[in-house]
Design a binder for these strands. Structure first.
Length: 513
RNA sequence: GGCUCGGUAGCUCAGCUGGUUAGAGCGUGGGAUUCAUAACCCCAAGGUCGGGAGUUCAAGUCUCCCCCGAGCCA
């Protein structure tokens, strides 16, 4: 089974912010999960590098647009590497092959008769890179999003005949599961129901873009450039830039993960473009929510942005991944609260999970020749912990399939809590003080170690580092097929255990983030 | 202005097609325990389910109006 998923291609106007990290982290969890269950994954991310805003930013900084893009996109690449994002591709829309793919795509669309010329005039926001609806006689209007003055434009642009695809798009977005979460579907439906209007796909006077073949002075507008990056990205390293290849390289994508702000472009414009170009449509578009911080919008003006670089540096990848994925329902807006972040990381990861491994491993080593105790009856799938483990796994799997990381994380945590509770009930430390209990203690510790092994495995897509550290302390072979490993009793009795040391330190902040 | 999505314990949220005393986690308070990362385990406090009206034997759960927040479209 092949599974292609994408993050948006991030706009290199500025360096990465927490929002892009959030999206990317979520995709990484999906990608890791799909690989673990044995699918062949193509996880695509990258950068969108054209546009007037970039050009002006570069000019302002006194560098060429290309130099600016090189620098910023390299920043993204390195950031993802440091977060240990497992993207298989990193596509840049300034990639020479991308230009060729765009040209071929455009040729197909044009051949369909879906490109027409049209005049577009109105007030234009360079920051949004789009026309606004302010009346023509407005005096010095400004952009409501950017608070910047609008520029009057009067240009002849190329339009994509989106209106032709009204019926097909209506059918598509009605398809259950195409737009997720379902709560966002209505919004798109209403938009489509108003009647789809052709949209412009080129700009004039915009040198920093891909030239439209056969239309001097035009370059492609963002959606006819950046979205196609998903296609270009699929090409293998030594593939020619041939659009015909993409269907053999993993297109259509199974999943586009995006912020809710660009849902329309992915759920309406993009599918129509694909239909026109004779390419199959993606299975699912997931529009996730936005992050605020302590109840406030993050922004430069407020000076309250959370820098993913700094978060990684000071808190570590596991902590941030866990907090974001475990506490914020993916799809809803979420609020980053420092105190809660600390509470959850320390409670869940350090106390509940880390300490569980630590306490169990030290008892086992102390009383059973430094290793896993003989299992006795604890290998039975009817063991109380085995039943709970199976139930958690059964809740976990569909949750991950639906990108419901929160439920998956909770299911995992539940197993750890059950194991801690079981230990307290059985109290092996008391039993060991009397003779004749050795077998019982062995079985109990085995069961808890086994449950802990499961916890480590289930954690793998969400907090891969921590999962790895746990598996090391359980002396597990990480190359064991994951889903097969989730069978009760696979922990080898009487195998040695390394000396335990905390797998997850409590997070203490000297000063606020 | 039209529309969408929310408004449930201090906080973050569960509550399917209406039906016993409204749930979980965190935080808070208390207890128990010592294997462990001052960790783990148990218990408690306790919210007129945004407000109002209505439908129903019965509404957090349906209808209407209003208020607040986020967003989409104009």
């Amino acid at each position: 089974m092949s599974y292609t998923l994408t993050t948006p291609l991030y706009y290199v106007n500025d360096r990465a912010h927490l929002g892009s990290a959030y999206t990317t982290l979520a995709c990484d969890a999906v990608a890791r999960y799909r690989r673990l269950i044995g699918e062949s994954v193509r996880f695509i991310t990258g950068c969108d590098e054209h546009g007037q805003k970039i050009q002006r930013t570069a000019e302002a900084a006194g560098v060429t647009p290309q130099a600016h893009c090189d620098a910023v996109s390299e920043g993204y690449r390195q950031l993802w590497a440091r977060w240990q994002i497992t993207n298989d591709r990193f596509i840049r829309t300034t990639d020479p092959r991308h230009r060729s793919i765009v040209e071929q795509f455009f040729a197909r669309v044009e051949a369909q008769g879906d490109v027409v010329e049209g005049r577009q005039q109105g007030w234009y926001c360079v920051a949004c890179e789009e026309f606004k609806d302010d009346p023509a006689d407005a005096e010095a209007p400004s952009c409501s999003v950017h608070q910047k003055p609008l520029e009057w434009r009067d240009e002849c642009n190329l339009f994509f005949r989106l209106s032709r695809y009204q019926g097909e798009i209506e059918a598509l977005i009605r398809r259950p599961g195409f737009i997720t979460p379902a709560s966002r579907r209505r919004e798109v439906e209403n938009f489509v129901a108003q009647g789809l209007r052709d949209f412009s796909i080129s700009r004039v006077e915009l040198p920093w873009g891909i030239p439209v073949p056969g239309h001097d002075g035009h370059t492609f507008y963002v959606w006819f450039d950046a979205l196609l990056g998903y296609l270009t990205a699929l090409l293998e390293a030594d593939d020619p830039a041939d659009l015909n290849l993409v269907t053999q390289r993993g297109w259509p994508a199974q999943l586009h993960v995006i912020g809710k702000d660009i849902l329309r472009f992915h759920a309406v414009y993009w599918p129509a473009m694909l239909l026109s170009a004779g390419l199959p449509l993606p299975d699912k578009v997931f529009g996730h929510g936005f992050l605020t911080r302590e109840g406030q919008k993050m922004g430069k003006s407020l000076g309250n942005v959370l820098d993913p670089e700094m978060l990684l540096e000071r808190c570590g990848s596991d902590a941030v991944r866990w907090y974001l994925l475990r506490d914020i329902p993916f799809g809803d807006d979420g609020d980053f609260q420092q105190q809660r972040f600390l509470d959850l990381v320390n409670n869940d990861l350090a106390n509940t999970i880390g300490n569980l491994l630590n306490r169990t491993s030290s008892m086992a080593r102390r009383w059973f020749e430094g290793g896993v105790p003989p299992a006795g009856g604890a290998v039975e799938p009817t063991h109380p912990l085995a039943l709970i483990a199976a139930a958690c796994r059964d809740r976990y799997r569909p949750a991950m399939e639906q990108l419901d990381f929160r439920t998956a994380a909770e299911a995992t945590l539940e197993l750890a809590i059950a194991a801690n509770g079981y230990l307290n009930e059985q109290a092996p430390w008391s039993r060991m003080k009397q003779d004749g209990n050795r077998e019982q203690v062995a079985a109990d510790l085995y069961a808890v170690l086994e449950a802990t092994r499961w916890v480590a495995l289930l954690l793998a897509p969400i907090v891969p580092d921590l999962s790895g550290r746990m598996l090391v302390q359980l002396a597990q072979d990480p190359s064991w097929p994951w889903w097969d490993a989730l069978v009760w009793g696979r922990l080898e009795p009487e195998s040695p255990l390394p000396e335990p040391s905390p797998v997850m330190a409590r997070l203490e902040l000297e000063e606020p983030l």
